[in-house]
């Protein structure tokens, strides 16, 4: 049971972080379908840091440096979305899809190259981080507290405050709802959209590194992040683009994802004798059902997905 709570919380943290990232991007008016790829690159940045850092480092600096690595990589990568979709008015769906594929391919190529350089016989795309991972965990009476749970809560509060209490948030949302109105009062729509996309990189990168640290202590980059970027988008839609509701939605989805990791710990679930694949597909099935019921009355930012063109008014 404790294990279920633990996994639920950690997966919910991932989903919430990434969904909040999507939330920033969409509130600025850019649909970020490339979150999956951004997660992979963020995970790569963090994993490379863990690989590079000596084990002798204390927990706090390790955590901060790993986080920084993930964020820097992911933000740089999300800039690819910004350039194409904001400055060149590219189709946001194509570019997002390309980023997802590119993320996995680039990470695999890079990690394999690093592994092969270190050991000519090693052609795997895996990075191990057994020791580094321990620094993220605190064992409280059998419950493995992961620092990411706290980080996720902090980032949630930050997202809420930034969106609803600051000048920046007000302007950002104006750009996603009615960019012409924002422009007419002197707000630079391109700048705000860039900000939205880069912030989604920050959140997406954190979510990425959190995801690969959630269960295992090595990661095979060929596998990407198993559609988590898209699950996060479903969480965002279910959460109606509002941080607090996103947090609740993430908990629900996190629970179903956690079940696939720990269902064998529950005798009554094992007794049902359902194949593991069913638990694996649970989160996707649930999100499909949830979307079917919530998409009709969506409160998506009105101008999202439409490239802003100063000339057209």
């Amino acid at each position: 049971m404790l294990l279920l709570v633990q996994y639920t919380l950690i997966f919910a943290s991932v989903l919430m972080l990434v969904a909040l990232g999507g939330c920033f991007s969409e509130h600025s008016g850019v649909i970020n379908l490339g979150l999956e790829g951004i997660m992979v690159i963020g995970a790569l940045g963090g994993a490379l840091m863990m690989r590079a850092l000596p084990n002798s480092w204390a927990a706090l600096p390790t955590i901060l440096v790993v986080l920084l690595g993930a964020v820097v990589f992911a933000v740089a990568y999300s800039a690819l979305l910004g350039v194409a979709c904001i400055n060149f008015k590219a189709d946001q769906t194509i570019v997002g899809t390309a980023l997802n594929m590119l993320g996995v391919a680039a990470a695999t190529v890079l990690v394999k190259a690093i592994n092969t350089a270190a050991d000519p016989n090693n052609v795997s795309s895996e990075i191990q981080y057994v020791e580094a991972k321990k620094k993220f965990l605190v064992n409280i009476a059998g419950f493995e507290f992961n620092w990411f749970m706290l980080i996720a809560i902090i980032m949630l509060v930050v997202a809420y405050v930034v969106l609803y209490k600051t000048r920046f948030g007000l302007r950002l949302m104006a750009c996603g709802e009615h960019p012409q109105a924002a422009d007419s009062v002197g707000i630079n729509v391109y700048k705000m959209r860039w900000a939205g996309v880069l912030i989604s990189g920050v959140y997406g990168g954190m979510g990425g590194i959190c995801y690969i640290l959630a269960g295992v202590s090595l990661w095979k980059f060929e596998n990407g992040v198993a559609g988590f970027g898209f699950l996060a988008l479903a969480v965002m839609i279910f959460g109606q683009w509002k941080p607090t509701r996103i947090a609740l939605a993430a908990l629900l989805f996190g629970l179903f994802r956690a079940l696939s990791n720990v269902y064998f710990g529950f005798p009554f679930l094992v007794a049902l004798n359902i194949p593991g694949s069913v638990y694996n597909m649970m989160p996707y099935l649930i999100s499909l059902v949830v979307l079917a019921f919530t998409s009709k009355k969506s409160r998506a930012p009105k101008a999202e997905g439409i490239p802003y063109d100063k000339g057209q008014r």
């Binding site: 600051t166 000048r167 007000l170 302007r171 949302m173 104006a174 709802e177 009615h178 012409q180 109105a181 924002a182 007419s184 009062v185 002197g186 707000i187 409160r299 009105k302």
Partner: peptide, 19 residues
Amino acid sequence: KLVECFTVLDNIILGVEPT
């Protein structure tokens, strides 16, 4: 040029927000 889901006040101050 009004943001429909904002309040009247938010629309008025948008761009010159006191902070």
